[in-house]
Protein backbone atom coordinates (compact mmCIF):
# COMPACT_ATOMS: atom_id res chain seq x y z
CA UNK A 1 0.00 0.00 0.00
CA UNK A 2 1.55 3.36 -0.98
CA UNK A 3 2.41 5.63 1.88
CA UNK A 4 0.03 8.60 2.05
CA UNK A 5 1.66 11.91 1.38
CA UNK A 6 1.85 13.90 4.59
CA UNK A 7 0.81 17.48 3.96
CA UNK A 8 2.53 20.45 5.49
CA UNK A 9 -0.26 21.09 7.96
CA UNK A 10 -0.21 17.49 9.15
CA UNK A 11 3.45 17.85 10.06
CA UNK A 12 2.82 21.01 12.03
CA UNK A 13 2.75 20.81 15.81
CA UNK A 14 -0.68 21.83 17.04
CA UNK A 15 -0.65 23.37 20.48
CA UNK A 16 -3.14 24.81 22.91
CA UNK A 17 -1.90 27.45 25.36
CA UNK A 18 -3.72 28.72 28.40
CA UNK A 19 -2.13 32.05 29.18
CA UNK A 20 -3.24 32.65 32.74
CA UNK A 21 -2.65 35.37 35.26
CA UNK A 22 -1.16 33.00 37.80
CA UNK A 23 -0.28 29.87 35.82
CA UNK A 24 0.13 29.18 32.14
CA UNK A 25 -0.18 25.77 30.57
CA UNK A 26 0.50 24.19 27.22
CA UNK A 27 -0.70 20.96 25.61
CA UNK A 28 0.55 19.69 22.27
CA UNK A 29 -0.52 17.00 19.85
CA UNK A 30 2.82 15.23 20.36
CA UNK A 31 1.40 14.15 23.72
CA UNK A 32 3.39 16.54 25.88
CA UNK A 33 1.85 19.01 28.29
CA UNK A 34 3.47 21.35 30.81
CA UNK A 35 2.68 24.30 33.01
CA UNK A 36 4.62 27.12 34.62
CA UNK A 37 3.86 29.96 36.99
CA UNK A 38 3.22 33.07 34.88
CA UNK A 39 6.32 34.80 36.15
CA UNK A 40 9.16 36.16 34.05
CA UNK A 41 12.36 37.54 35.52
CA UNK A 42 15.41 39.32 34.14
CA UNK A 43 18.66 39.66 36.13
CA UNK A 44 18.64 43.05 37.83
CA UNK A 45 22.32 43.99 37.50
CA UNK A 46 25.75 42.69 36.57
CA UNK A 47 26.10 40.78 39.86
CA UNK A 48 22.84 38.96 39.17
CA UNK A 49 23.92 38.34 35.57
CA UNK A 50 27.21 36.91 36.78
CA UNK A 51 25.32 34.55 39.07
CA UNK A 52 22.40 33.59 36.82
CA UNK A 53 23.82 34.16 33.36
CA UNK A 54 22.35 36.51 30.77
CA UNK A 55 19.04 34.76 30.48
CA UNK A 56 15.39 35.12 31.26
CA UNK A 57 14.00 32.99 34.06
CA UNK A 58 10.50 31.60 34.41
CA UNK A 59 8.11 30.20 37.01
CA UNK A 60 9.64 28.57 40.06
CA UNK A 61 13.14 29.75 39.12
CA UNK A 62 11.87 33.32 39.35
CA UNK A 63 10.46 32.67 42.80
CA UNK A 64 13.74 31.14 43.87
CA UNK A 65 15.88 34.07 42.70
CA UNK A 66 13.32 36.85 42.94
CA UNK A 67 15.63 39.16 44.92
CA UNK A 68 18.11 39.21 42.04
CA UNK A 69 15.51 39.70 39.32
CA UNK A 70 13.24 42.27 37.77
CA UNK A 71 10.07 40.21 38.00
CA UNK A 72 7.09 40.58 35.68
CA UNK A 73 3.72 38.93 36.01
CA UNK A 74 2.67 39.57 32.42
CA UNK A 75 -1.07 39.14 32.80
CA UNK A 76 -1.71 40.68 36.21
CA UNK A 77 -5.37 41.71 36.51
CA UNK A 78 -6.08 39.61 33.44
CA UNK A 79 -4.52 41.97 30.92
CA UNK A 80 -1.09 42.76 29.57
CA UNK A 81 -0.37 45.33 32.21
CA UNK A 82 0.40 48.69 30.72
CA UNK A 83 1.10 47.78 27.15
CA UNK A 84 4.74 48.83 27.47
CA UNK A 85 7.41 47.07 25.47
CA UNK A 86 8.66 45.22 28.55
CA UNK A 87 5.18 43.92 29.38
CA UNK A 88 4.71 42.63 25.87
CA UNK A 89 8.20 41.21 25.80
CA UNK A 90 7.48 39.25 28.96
CA UNK A 91 4.40 37.70 27.32
CA UNK A 92 6.48 36.80 24.28
CA UNK A 93 9.20 35.26 26.46
CA UNK A 94 6.64 33.28 28.42
CA UNK A 95 5.03 31.91 25.27
CA UNK A 96 8.45 31.04 23.84
CA UNK A 97 9.34 29.21 27.03
CA UNK A 98 6.07 27.29 27.08
CA UNK A 99 6.54 26.17 23.49
CA UNK A 100 10.09 25.02 24.22
CA UNK A 101 8.71 22.84 27.02
CA UNK A 102 6.72 20.68 24.60
CA UNK A 103 9.85 20.17 22.49
CA UNK A 104 8.84 20.81 18.89
CA UNK A 105 11.14 19.25 16.31
CA UNK A 106 13.74 21.62 14.77
CA UNK A 107 12.04 23.89 12.19
CA UNK A 108 8.70 22.24 12.86
CA UNK A 109 5.82 24.60 12.07
CA UNK A 110 3.59 25.50 14.97
CA UNK A 111 -0.14 26.12 14.81
CA UNK A 112 -1.23 27.65 18.12
CA UNK A 113 -4.62 28.22 19.71
CA UNK A 114 -4.13 30.58 22.63
CA UNK A 115 -6.69 31.12 25.37
CA UNK A 116 -6.35 34.35 27.30
CA UNK A 117 -8.37 35.98 30.09
CA UNK A 118 -11.52 37.51 28.63
CA UNK A 119 -10.36 41.02 29.55
CA UNK A 120 -7.07 40.56 27.74
CA UNK A 121 -9.01 39.42 24.70
CA UNK A 122 -10.91 42.68 24.74
CA UNK A 123 -8.07 44.98 25.66
CA UNK A 124 -4.98 43.69 23.95
CA UNK A 125 -5.67 40.81 21.63
CA UNK A 126 -3.45 42.47 19.06
CA UNK A 127 -0.55 42.65 21.50
CA UNK A 128 -0.91 38.93 22.22
CA UNK A 129 -0.89 38.25 18.52
CA UNK A 130 2.33 40.24 18.18
CA UNK A 131 3.84 38.46 21.17
CA UNK A 132 3.45 35.02 19.62
CA UNK A 133 4.49 36.09 16.13
CA UNK A 134 8.06 34.90 16.65
CA UNK A 135 7.11 31.39 17.62
CA UNK A 136 4.12 30.25 15.59
CA UNK A 137 3.25 30.15 11.91
CA UNK A 138 -0.51 30.17 12.47
CA UNK A 139 -2.54 31.43 15.36
CA UNK A 140 -6.00 31.80 16.75
CA UNK A 141 -6.76 33.64 19.97
CA UNK A 142 -9.85 32.90 22.07
CA UNK A 143 -11.06 33.61 25.59
CA UNK A 144 -10.12 31.11 28.29
CA UNK A 145 -13.67 30.14 29.27
CA UNK A 146 -14.49 29.53 25.63
CA UNK A 147 -11.43 27.27 25.27
CA UNK A 148 -12.53 25.32 28.36
CA UNK A 149 -16.07 24.98 26.98
CA UNK A 150 -14.80 23.78 23.62
CA UNK A 151 -12.49 21.23 25.21
CA UNK A 152 -15.32 19.83 27.31
CA UNK A 153 -17.78 19.80 24.42
CA UNK A 154 -20.07 22.13 26.42
CA UNK A 155 -21.06 24.02 23.31
CA UNK A 156 -24.78 24.54 23.75
CA UNK A 157 -26.78 25.93 26.66
CA UNK A 158 -23.95 25.85 29.17
CA UNK A 159 -22.26 28.41 31.38
CA UNK A 160 -18.55 28.36 32.11
CA UNK A 161 -17.27 30.24 35.14
CA UNK A 162 -13.51 30.43 34.92
CA UNK A 163 -12.22 31.53 38.31
CA UNK A 164 -8.62 32.49 37.74
CA UNK A 165 -6.21 34.61 39.72
CA UNK A 166 -6.79 38.00 38.13
CA UNK A 167 -10.35 37.68 36.86
CA UNK A 168 -13.42 35.52 37.06
CA UNK A 169 -14.69 35.11 33.51
CA UNK A 170 -18.23 34.07 32.63
CA UNK A 171 -19.25 32.70 29.29
CA UNK A 172 -22.58 31.37 28.10
CA UNK A 173 -22.42 28.92 25.22
CA UNK A 174 -25.41 28.61 22.93
CA UNK A 175 -24.22 26.75 19.89
CA UNK A 176 -22.28 29.67 18.45
CA UNK A 177 -19.20 31.65 19.32
CA UNK A 178 -20.14 33.65 22.43
CA UNK A 179 -20.60 37.32 21.63
CA UNK A 180 -19.50 40.19 23.86
CA UNK A 181 -22.93 40.08 25.47
CA UNK A 182 -22.48 36.40 26.36
CA UNK A 183 -19.28 37.06 28.31
CA UNK A 184 -18.48 38.99 31.46
CA UNK A 185 -15.52 39.46 33.74
CA UNK A 186 -15.13 40.28 37.39
CA UNK A 187 -11.86 41.35 38.94
CA UNK A 188 -12.76 39.57 42.16
CA UNK A 189 -10.86 36.31 41.81
CA UNK A 190 -7.93 34.44 43.39
CA UNK A 191 -5.72 37.49 43.90
CA UNK A 192 -8.58 39.26 45.63
CA UNK A 193 -8.99 36.32 48.02
CA UNK A 194 -5.25 36.45 48.79
CA UNK A 195 -5.44 40.15 49.61
CA UNK A 196 -8.45 39.62 51.84
CA UNK A 197 -6.77 36.76 53.66
CA UNK A 198 -3.55 38.71 54.13
CA UNK A 199 -5.55 41.63 55.56
CA UNK A 200 -7.52 39.42 57.95
CA UNK A 201 -4.48 37.48 59.18
CA UNK A 202 -2.35 40.59 59.62
CA UNK A 203 -5.13 42.04 61.71
CA UNK A 204 -5.50 38.95 63.88
CA UNK A 205 -1.82 38.07 64.14
CA UNK A 206 0.05 41.36 63.78
CA UNK A 207 3.35 39.84 64.87
CA UNK A 208 3.28 36.94 62.43
CA UNK A 209 5.38 37.15 59.30
CA UNK A 210 2.94 36.66 56.42
CA UNK A 211 3.51 37.67 52.83
CA UNK A 212 1.35 37.31 49.73
CA UNK A 213 3.21 34.28 48.34
CA UNK A 214 2.82 32.40 51.63
CA UNK A 215 -0.83 33.40 51.81
CA UNK A 216 -1.42 32.09 48.28
CA UNK A 217 0.05 28.75 49.21
CA UNK A 218 -2.22 28.60 52.31
CA UNK A 219 -5.24 29.23 50.09
CA UNK A 220 -4.23 26.61 47.56
CA UNK A 221 -3.72 24.03 50.26
CA UNK A 222 -6.56 24.80 52.67
CA UNK A 223 -9.07 27.06 50.86
CA UNK A 224 -12.71 26.25 51.65
CA UNK A 225 -16.18 27.77 51.84
CA UNK A 226 -19.13 26.73 53.98
CA UNK A 227 -18.74 24.65 57.10
CA UNK A 228 -15.41 22.99 57.76
CA UNK A 229 -15.04 19.77 59.71
CA UNK A 230 -11.40 20.39 60.47
CA UNK A 231 -9.43 23.34 61.71
CA UNK A 232 -6.98 25.04 59.39
CA UNK A 233 -3.66 25.49 61.13
CA UNK A 234 -0.58 26.88 59.46
CA UNK A 235 2.92 27.68 60.52
CA UNK A 236 4.19 31.25 60.36
CA UNK A 237 7.22 32.86 61.95
CA UNK A 238 6.90 35.29 64.82
CA UNK A 239 10.17 37.07 65.59
CA UNK A 240 11.99 34.35 63.70
CA UNK A 241 10.38 31.42 65.52
CA UNK A 242 7.89 29.10 63.80
CA UNK A 243 4.47 29.33 65.50
CA UNK A 244 1.28 27.46 64.56
CA UNK A 245 -1.73 29.71 63.88
CA UNK A 246 -5.39 28.82 63.54
CA UNK A 247 -6.69 30.55 60.40
CA UNK A 248 -9.99 28.64 59.92
CA UNK A 249 -12.44 31.52 60.17
CA UNK A 250 -10.22 33.94 58.20
CA UNK A 251 -9.79 31.39 55.41
CA UNK A 252 -13.54 30.89 55.15
CA UNK A 253 -14.29 34.63 55.17
CA UNK A 254 -11.65 35.38 52.54
CA UNK A 255 -12.73 32.56 50.22
CA UNK A 256 -16.41 33.44 50.55
CA UNK A 257 -15.75 37.12 49.92
CA UNK A 258 -15.78 36.66 46.15
CA UNK A 259 -18.84 34.46 45.91
CA UNK A 260 -21.79 36.86 46.24
CA UNK A 261 -20.63 38.85 43.21
CA UNK A 262 -20.06 35.63 41.26
CA UNK A 263 -23.50 34.24 42.13
CA UNK A 264 -25.17 37.54 41.30
CA UNK A 265 -23.44 37.82 37.93
CA UNK A 266 -24.30 34.23 37.05
CA UNK A 267 -27.96 34.82 37.97
CA UNK A 268 -28.10 38.02 35.98
CA UNK A 269 -26.60 36.40 32.88
CA UNK A 270 -28.95 33.45 33.09
CA UNK A 271 -31.95 35.76 33.60
CA UNK A 272 -31.03 37.62 30.42
CA UNK A 273 -30.73 34.39 28.44
CA UNK A 274 -33.59 33.11 26.35
CA UNK A 275 -36.23 31.97 28.90
CA UNK A 276 -36.82 28.80 26.93
CA UNK A 277 -33.28 27.61 27.60
CA UNK A 278 -32.61 29.04 31.06
CA UNK A 279 -33.32 25.71 32.78
CA UNK A 280 -30.77 23.96 30.62
CA UNK A 281 -28.09 26.56 31.29
CA UNK A 282 -28.81 26.51 35.02
CA UNK A 283 -28.26 22.77 35.03
CA UNK A 284 -25.06 22.97 33.07
CA UNK A 285 -22.79 25.35 35.00
CA UNK A 286 -19.14 24.40 34.89
CA UNK A 287 -16.48 25.84 37.18
CA UNK A 288 -12.93 26.08 35.88
CA UNK A 289 -9.72 27.84 36.89
CA UNK A 290 -7.55 27.52 39.98
CA UNK A 291 -10.20 28.84 42.39
CA UNK A 292 -12.59 26.07 41.40
CA UNK A 293 -10.42 23.89 43.67
CA UNK A 294 -11.57 25.74 46.79
CA UNK A 295 -13.43 23.07 48.76
CA UNK A 296 -17.22 23.41 48.83
CA UNK A 297 -17.40 26.13 46.18
CA UNK A 298 -19.73 24.15 43.89
CA UNK A 299 -22.19 23.46 46.73
CA UNK A 300 -22.12 27.09 47.81
CA UNK A 301 -22.91 28.34 44.31
CA UNK A 302 -25.60 25.71 43.80
CA UNK A 303 -27.34 26.90 46.96
CA UNK A 304 -26.95 30.54 46.02
CA UNK A 305 -28.39 29.95 42.54
CA UNK A 306 -31.18 27.67 43.73
CA UNK A 307 -33.49 30.65 44.23
CA UNK A 308 -33.84 30.67 40.43
CA UNK A 309 -34.79 26.99 40.44
CA UNK A 310 -32.90 23.71 40.59
CA UNK A 311 -29.40 23.89 39.20
CA UNK A 312 -26.28 21.85 38.81
CA UNK A 313 -22.72 23.10 39.21
CA UNK A 314 -19.81 20.85 38.28
CA UNK A 315 -16.05 21.33 38.38
CA UNK A 316 -13.67 20.50 35.55
CA UNK A 317 -11.55 17.43 36.16
CA UNK A 318 -8.21 19.11 35.75
CA UNK A 319 -8.39 22.88 36.09
CA UNK A 320 -4.69 23.30 35.48
CA UNK A 321 -4.88 21.89 31.97
CA UNK A 322 -8.57 22.39 31.05
CA UNK A 323 -7.85 25.61 29.10
CA UNK A 324 -4.77 24.26 27.34
CA UNK A 325 -6.52 21.00 26.42
CA UNK A 326 -9.47 23.03 25.10
CA UNK A 327 -7.09 25.11 23.02
CA UNK A 328 -5.47 21.95 21.71
CA UNK A 329 -8.88 20.51 20.77
CA UNK A 330 -9.60 23.73 18.92
CA UNK A 331 -6.20 23.61 17.21
CA UNK A 332 -6.80 20.03 16.12
CA UNK A 333 -10.31 20.69 14.79
CA UNK A 334 -9.62 24.01 13.09
CA UNK A 335 -9.64 23.58 9.30
CA UNK A 336 -6.42 24.69 7.64
CA UNK A 337 -8.07 27.53 5.74
CA UNK A 338 -9.34 29.10 8.96
CA UNK A 339 -5.91 29.58 10.47
CA UNK A 340 -4.56 33.10 10.52
CA UNK A 341 -1.07 33.67 9.16
CA UNK A 342 1.29 35.53 11.45
Amino acid sequence: MPKAKVSQQDKALRIGIDLGTSRSAIAANNGKRKWVQSLVGWPKDFVARKMLGDRVLFGDEVKEHRLSLDVMRPLAQGVIKSGTEKDEESVAELIGHLISLVEPRPRQKIFAAVGVPAEALKVNKRAIREAIADYAEKLIVVSEPFAVAYGMGALDNAMIIDMGAGTTDFCIMHGTMPSVDDQRSLTTAGDYIDEQLLGLLTERYPDADFNINVIRSFKEEHGFVGDSLTQVEVEARVEGRPIVHDITSEMRRACESVLPAIAETAMDMIARFDPEYQDQVRNNIILAGGCSQIAGIDTYLMEALSEMGPCNVSIVDNPLYAGAQGGLALAKDMPYEYWMDM
Partner: peptide
Protein backbone atom coordinates in the same frame (compact mmCIF):
# COMPACT_ATOMS: atom_id res chain seq x y z
CA UNK B 1 -22.34 23.27 16.15
CA UNK B 2 -18.58 22.68 16.18
CA UNK B 3 -18.32 23.61 12.54
CA UNK B 4 -20.33 26.81 13.13
CA UNK B 5 -18.20 27.70 16.12
CA UNK B 6 -14.93 27.11 14.28
CA UNK B 7 -16.13 29.40 11.53
CA UNK B 8 -17.08 32.01 14.13
CA UNK B 9 -13.64 31.76 15.74
CA UNK B 10 -12.13 32.34 12.32
CA UNK B 11 -14.37 35.38 11.69
CA UNK B 12 -13.55 36.90 15.06
CA UNK B 13 -9.83 36.42 14.59
CA UNK B 14 -10.13 37.81 11.08
CA UNK B 15 -11.85 40.88 12.50
CA UNK B 16 -9.00 41.43 14.96
CA UNK B 17 -6.61 41.23 12.02
CA UNK B 18 -8.21 44.41 10.70
CA UNK B 19 -6.99 46.34 13.74
CA UNK B 20 -4.00 48.56 13.11
CA UNK B 21 -0.80 46.60 13.31
CA UNK B 22 1.41 47.41 16.24
CA UNK B 23 4.83 48.44 15.12
CA UNK B 24 7.18 45.76 16.30
CA UNK B 25 10.93 45.88 16.17
CA UNK B 26 12.56 43.22 14.02
CA UNK B 27 13.25 40.21 16.19
CA UNK B 28 15.97 37.70 15.46
CA UNK B 29 15.28 35.69 18.58
Amino acid sequence: IKSTILHDVYCENLASEQLPRIQQPLSLR
